[in-house]
Amino acid sequence: MGPFILRRVAQMIPLMIGITLITFILANAVPGSPLSALAFNPTISQEDIRRMEDQLGLNEPLHVRYVVWVSNLVRGDFGLSMRNQRPVLGTIMDKLPNTLILTGTALLMSLIFSIPVGVYSAVRRNSAFDNGATATAVAGFSMPTFWFALMMILIFAVKARDWGLPITFPAAGTHDLRGGGGVLDRMHHLFLPAFTLAFVQTAAWTRYIRSQMIEVLNQDYMRTANAKGLRERIVIFRHGLRNAMLPLVTLLGIAIPDLFGGSLIIEQIFTWPGIGQLAFNSAINKDYTMVMGIVVFVGFLVILGNLIADVVYGLLDPRIRYD
């Protein structure tokens, strides 16, 4: 296991270099300098701009700037936001917990729903239930996230009040700004964005779990378990589900990019102060250093997630040997 982890960590390095390289090349493909916005500012003289260029190292050749940027990244120095001069990494870290809470809750919600549905679909393959679940899954992942979010707000935050429904949900923020902030209040605010994010993911998870389960159901040990006369519930859950859940760990690693991508839109619509909203606002404000920092950071999280998933998979499944 030790050498395997070392080798996997070593594989991360070229990936990280690649991500920084792509980000850097894209950011530098823009015509003009980051300071060109200042060129027409009457209070800033040409000399000042030249001095700023020197200070920022903009006159160095590209490869030197790349090396400086990357070696700063490695030391945890993501630079300063071009918008408000605050450290990029610190700002990301401030927002990260909100995004993790949102995506984590959404993931939990979709697993709670999709595991039973996926298992039942696989066990009763081609039944009315299975066909219904398949059709619903297609309906689910065809849904445009942003539109679904707007419809959720329209129904549960706007119309529910008009219709006099007993349950309404807030459509923005993480907690009530009028002195709220208790756990219940936060959960109340979390529900709508998390549900929306979960809804779109659930369809894909249901399909994954169904196909994993079908594969496991065809294994020899399942027939053995049945032949021994074990009750169906024990066969399905103890022998089947436990084995079907193993590849799920890897899929969790693969799902991280989708979760972050989905949360970008959800955070924007529900004004949820996470990394997605930060990325979007920085993009609108042309805050290059922030956007570059976020892309590199999220890329790093994804790679790290995949690494952890691989290692955990190896720990869970003794059949996997790493030589």
């Binding site: 990019p257 991508g261 970008l264 990325a279 995949n306």
Partner: peptide, 23 residues
């Protein structure tokens, strides 16, 4: 395939966001 790995590590929407910011 290493290049594909790199591209898959950056969530598509973030990458598109980066480019759309610039152009």
């Amino acid at each position: 395939m290493r290049f594909v790995d790199i591209m898959l590590s950056i969530p598509t929407l973030f990458l598109l966001l980066l480019v759309a910011t610039l152009f």
